[in-house]
Amino acid sequence: MTADFLFDRPRKPAGLFGKSFSIALLLAGYSALCWLAFSESLRNWEKVWSYRETFWNGWLTTVQISAAALVLSSLIGGATALARRSNFLPLRYTAIAYVETVRGLPLMVLVLFGFYGVANALGWQDRVSAGIVILSLFSGAYIAEMIRSGIESVGRSQWDSARAIGLTPTQTYRFVVFPQVLRQILPPLAGQFSSLIKDSSLLYIIGIPELTFAANQVNSATYSTFESFVPLGICYLLLTLPVSLWTKRLEKKTRYET
């Protein structure tokens, strides 16, 4: 006997029954795993529930930080990608040094060094704005590399055609290069945004009251570790899953031949 209905083959695609059966199987396994892990420990919901406002405020801060860093890191990434292609050597080398340094260091080191080292020396006391800038600088380095490789993948003939019809360099970037780059890097970019949301959790080490900070606080106050961190995980998934699903859709939509 073969469970033929569980296979999805090019010649014989799976039917609705096979798909729903597989999903049911997965959910059952997943639930069993959660049961094993948490059934003994998830008992202290009342206490944690009384801290719901702490969670809510932390979640809001995380959303705000992520949204601001998302915009700022895109700007930094775009500017750095252009700087890396600049003819002006000091600018090009600065961009290279920035990208390589940031990509070579753990985020935790950057957060600590950035806040207690640089921001303190500058007299920058506001933790949230400093956190946003540090996170954006971190993410911006990765985005810069995506944009750079996107620009480099635009063929020589496209630059030639743009020059031949008389476009200026700025117009060439705006009308010819960036639209093609954007389509190409949207999927990895969306993945980077999802990472950025998760990476914002490290900002708790400089005392920003975001989601992870909130969960830690609730944990110390209630001694209910799992009851504090399970909601934490769910809250992050609520942010990252939509981004991930959106990415999948983009990948389908932006596929085009050249």
């Binding site: 003939s157 030639d160 019809i165 008389g166 009308f175 093609q180």
Partner: peptide, 26 residues
């Protein structure tokens, strides 16, 4: 006016937009 071997057109624009681009921007 220049026409190359291949890949003259901008792949993200329609035929109409390809012709309009230099007319409008240049």
């Amino acid at each position: 006016g220049v026409v190359f071997q291949a890949y003259n057109l901008f792949p993200h624009l329609t035929a109409l937009q390809n012709i309009r681009l230099p007319l409008e921007q240049v």
